[in-house]
Amino acid sequence: MADINIVQEHHLAPEQARAAAQQVADKLAEQFELTCRWDGDVLRFERSGVNGALTLRPNQAQLQIALGFPISMMAAAVEAKVTEKMRKLFVS
Rank of each mutant, 00 (worst) to 15 (best):
E33L: 04
R44F: 01
R47Y: 01
G49P: 08
I4W: 02
T55P: 05
A13K: 14
C36K: 12
W38C: 12
A53L: 03
Q62P: 04
E9I: 02
D41H: 11
R87H: 09
H10E: 03
R18M: 09
L12T: 02
Q8F: 01
A75S: 15
K85F: 05
S72N: 11
E46C: 02
A21N: 13
R18Y: 08
V24C: 10
A19W: 02
E15C: 07
T55D: 10
A19Q: 15
I6W: 00
D26W: 07
V78H: 09
D26M: 06
E46M: 01
A61G: 06
D39Y: 09
G40T: 04
V24F: 10
A53F: 02
M74L: 14
A53H: 05
Q16A: 15
A20Y: 02
I71T: 09
P58D: 14
V7R: 10
I65G: 00
M74V: 08
N59T: 09
H11S: 12
A13N: 10
K81C: 00
F45H: 10
L56S: 13
I4G: 03
A17C: 05
E30Y: 08
G52Q: 03
M73D: 01
E79A: 12
M73H: 02
F45R: 05
L28M: 15
A20H: 02
Q22H: 05
A77K: 10
C36S: 15
T55K: 08
A61T: 08
Q62Y: 04
P70I: 12
V7S: 13
H10V: 04
A25N: 10
M73F: 13
I6K: 00
G49N: 06
M74K: 13
G49A: 04
I6N: 06
H11I: 06
E15M: 09
A77V: 10
Q31H: 11
E30N: 12
A25I: 07
E79D: 07
R57G: 11
I65C: 03
M74D: 09
Q31V: 01
A61R: 04
S48V: 04
N5T: 10
K85Q: 15
H10K: 06
Q62S: 10
P58W: 04
V42W: 03
I6D: 02
L67T: 07
A19T: 07
C36D: 12
G40I: 02
E33I: 01
T55E: 15
M86V: 01
E33D: 14
M73W: 02
Q16E: 14
P58N: 08
D41P: 11
A13F: 12
I6P: 01
V50Q: 01
A61Q: 06
Q16R: 11
D26G: 07
A53G: 15
H11K: 09
H10D: 01
A66Y: 00
H11C: 03
P70F: 05
I71Y: 00
Q62E: 13
A66C: 04
E30T: 14
K81N: 14
L28H: 11
L67P: 08
P14A: 07
R87E: 09
L56Q: 08
A13D: 11
F45P: 08
D41W: 06
W38T: 09
Q22I: 00
R87F: 01
S48G: 07
A17Y: 04
L12E: 04
P14L: 06
M86S: 03
L56K: 07
A29T: 12
R37K: 14
I71H: 00
